[in-house]
Write a protein that binds this DNA or RNA. Structure first.
Lengths: 254, 254
DNA sequence: CAGCCGGATTTTGCATGCAAGATTGCTGCC
DNA sequence: GGCAGCAATCTTGCATGCAAAATCCGGCTG
């Protein structure tokens, strides 16, 4: 067991939650970590002993991950981990862009009180503060990720559409569909400063468009903003070794 | 069988499939049929005896319907049926329009062999044939629904994006998100002929745009096409009694 | 030598039962 | 009379066990 199995360790951390929640968390990490070969049938009994849960909560966890899109339910019974082509990933990014674009437009159209923009504004201000130092530290890096998530969450909330918010969440839970995808590795830290500055600029523009109730502009900007993730993907794809260290990289078929 | 509970009858029809599949089917119908009050907590044991399945497959069915968006998982344990505002329904329709628009654009952009358009073309031809008679019969009505579904399915397939196809399917499984929503009742038959002719015209235009590789045009057309469903909703909303007879109408909060 | 068929083994689907947690109603105190 | 605390009951979460279905493997036949 070279890269250790988290199930064997630290059972204390996640013991409080339900078995199903634990199994879901652990299993998701295992899948994303590439501990199953794509196409390989996942057998319940060995997995349940490995995760220290019984088969019932394990089954529920498998179902949930299948709904997320990480696993596939084979007609002839059994779960299999999904493999993703680079096209799939591009499509997932564009899908999120499409949905976030719609959210931005709706946010502009349905905005009532400008004070509702506070979460977005705060995120921008906080990000700005992170760039004070000339060099990007690791804390600043993780702080950026955090504020980025906050902005995107705030955008989804602003559209005042449960339906669309739900769709965005589902699209973001898709592998590589998250707004922070491909940013979650330290190797990029050195090159990331520029990217982050551009992203912040995008955020400011989107905020400005919503504040000015310019729906079409907000939509276009948010849609294009998602394509920043493509750049990261392109960078990762250039170096296979790097790709393997990216979260979920082992699920990409080359 | 007008409105009786299907669980009590015809256990023969769905006996072959798995218990979970049966439970999912039956439960979905019960929920859409309004047999639970929105906000009411669904108790597993009485339901399981009523559906003639044990709690394990019932639980799985509940989870699936929750993922579909019909049920909500309450934090303090338990499932509850969702209620939908008219805004929710409008948003669901627009979401499908957004996604189908993207699919139409991709279909135009990624089209290789014009022969791939055959499914869409066939659907249009078949629909046309249904209008031969001056008056719309019930068979023609159901035939229209069928061909409509075929067209929309074909559109999703043409975009060559698993990710987008998946998103469309999820959006369409949302209550009232289906391309045939609000058409599934006979009361509308009389008024529907005009609507159907318009829909067929839209389909032809979308097909034409894709065939001509006019991505932007195809996107706009498909997006607007979804708004036909809004008209049906508006018609249904004018008459409360009518609304209650529409599939899923009892889930709408007024 | 390849393909097919049948039995052994594995694997999943599901029912039952139990224990922990939530809910409700009652009682006693303020 | 209202509220807090407690207890009884109900409800869900989960483990175990069994049966059916699928898979695998070896032998047989063409």
């Amino acid at each position: 067991m070279p890269s250790v199995n988290p199930a064997e360790h630290s059972p204390s951390e996640s013991r409080s939650a339900s078995q199903t929640a634990r199994a879901t968390l652990l299993l998701r990490e295992m899948v994303i970590d590439g501990q199953f070969r794509p196409g390989e049938r996942i057998k319940e009994i060995p997995l349940s002993t490995r995760l220290h849960v019984s088969r019932i909560p394990l089954r529920l966890a498998l179902e949930r991950l299948a709904h997320e899109g990480l696993l596939e339910i084979r007609a002839t019974r059994g779960f299999v981990v999904q493999q993703f082509s680079t096209t799939d990933i591009y499509d997932a990014i564009d899908l999120r862009g499409l949905l976030e674009g719609a959210a931005a437009r709706l946010a502009a159209e349905r905005l009532r009180d400008p004070r509702d923009l506070a979460p977005l504004r705060d995120s921008c201000v906080a990000m700005e503060a992170l760039f004070d130092k000339r060099k990007l530290t690791l804390e600043a890096f993780t702080g950026f990720i955090e504020q980025n998530a906050r902005f995107h969450k705030g955008l989804a909330d602003l559209c005042r559409s449960r339906i669309l918010r739900r769709a965005i969440q589902q699209a973001s839970s898709l592998p590589f569909g998250s707004p922070s995808a491909f940013l979650l590795t330290q190797q990029f830290v050195a090159d990331s400063r520029h990217l982050f500055l551009v992203a912040l600029d995008h955020h400011r523009d989107i905020l400005d468009a919503i504040a000015g109730r310019e729906g079409a502009r907000a939509e276009t900007l948010a849609r294009e903003h998602a394509r920043l993730a493509r750049r990261n993907l392109d960078a990762a794809l250039k170096d296979r070794e790097l790709l393997k260290s990216v979260r979920g990289g082992k699920l990409i078929e080359l």
